[in-house]
């Protein structure tokens, strides 16, 4: 065992799993010198539901699934979050990608079979194919996201001397647009392949069943006036009127 005395809970403090206490303790333990990046990461994650950042008297409030499974660097997740929000922004209709939980949806997808291309043909050689939007790389989707998101940050630094998430809205859109047109070069994969994944998975996260961590509280469906999952429309299918129905999710449908 490595001696981790320096990282242990300071004497006299009881272990408390709550976020606020942990941050406080960390601050004390380091005398506040860590500051910056790490503390900023711990305190300022704006992508979580409000309830989950409180200590939460009621267990029902806590969205335990809003926790990263795939992205080890919070920096990558911040770029992802801001990118999805530009693709599907909050507006008068309702929440944007962040409010719908899309970044966590993508994180979970990348942590599973889809992110590791379990069901895909991954034998070489990978070819360079011009003019066809095709997945021609031996990198997994997870690898592609890491490469793409870091390149977005690097490109933002180069162009504006700032991180992607600190850019103005139109500057962010410019980076995304250039990605979508393949004007920013990635290593091992076409930028267009990455952008298509980013765009499509953002829409999936907005509208997939909430069981996957996006479409929070079925808000995506509500904006679309989509009824979600229902057993039967036998009595409504020939209705002359538009039937606005409260959505139902698989949680309340499956046995």
């Amino acid at each position: 065992m490595v001696d981790n005395k320096n990282n242990s809970t300071p004497a006299g403090e009881e272990h408390d799993p709550s976020r606020r206490k942990f941050i406080k303790n960390t601050g004390i333990a380091t005398g506040g010198v860590i500051g910056g990046t790490i503390l900023g990461a711990l305190i300022g994650n704006p992508f979580k539901s409000e309830e989950s950042s409180s200590t939460g008297d009621s267990k029902d409030d806590v969205h335990f699934s809003e926790t990263r499974m795939f992205f080890s660097r919070f920096e990558d997740f911040k770029v992802l979050s801001e990118a999805t929000e530009r693709i599907y922004p909050e507006d008068d209709n309702g929440p944007g990608a962040i409010g719908l939980g899309v970044p966590y949806f993508i994180d979970k997808q990348l942590a599973g079979a889809y992110g590791s291309n379990k069901n895909d043909y991954m034998k070489g050689p990978a070819q360079k194919v011009e003019g066809v939007n095709t997945y021609q790389t031996l990198m997994t989707r997870g690898d592609v996201f890491i490469e793409g998101l870091r390149k977005m940050n690097a490109e933002s630094q180069k162009r504006h001397d700032a991180k992607f998430y600190d850019l103005e809205a139109d500057q962010k859109d410019e980076v995304l647009q250039d990605l979508s047109e393949g004007k920013i070069k990635l290593v091992g994969v076409e930028a267009t392949t990455f952008f298509k994944l980013l765009r499509d998975m953002t829409i999936e996260g907005a509208y997939a069943d909430p069981l996957y961590g996006g479409n929070k509280n079925m808000e995506g469906w509500k904006m679309k006036e989509h009824p979600g999952i229902r057993a039967s429309y036998m009595d409504l299918i020939d209705s002359e009127d538009f039937e606005k129905l409260d959505p139902i999710s698989l949680r309340d449908y499956q046995q």
Binding site: P89, I203, Y207, H226
Partner: peptide
């Protein structure tokens, strides 16, 4: 299904503010 069905007139981009508004 709402994931796959986002038809918009061809002058609307495939992502961003206008896409969201028009697809809804």
């Amino acid at each position: 299904d709402p994931i796959g069905y986002n038809n918009v007139p061809s002058d609307v981009p495939s992502w961003g503010k206008e896409f969201k508004e028009k697809s809804l």
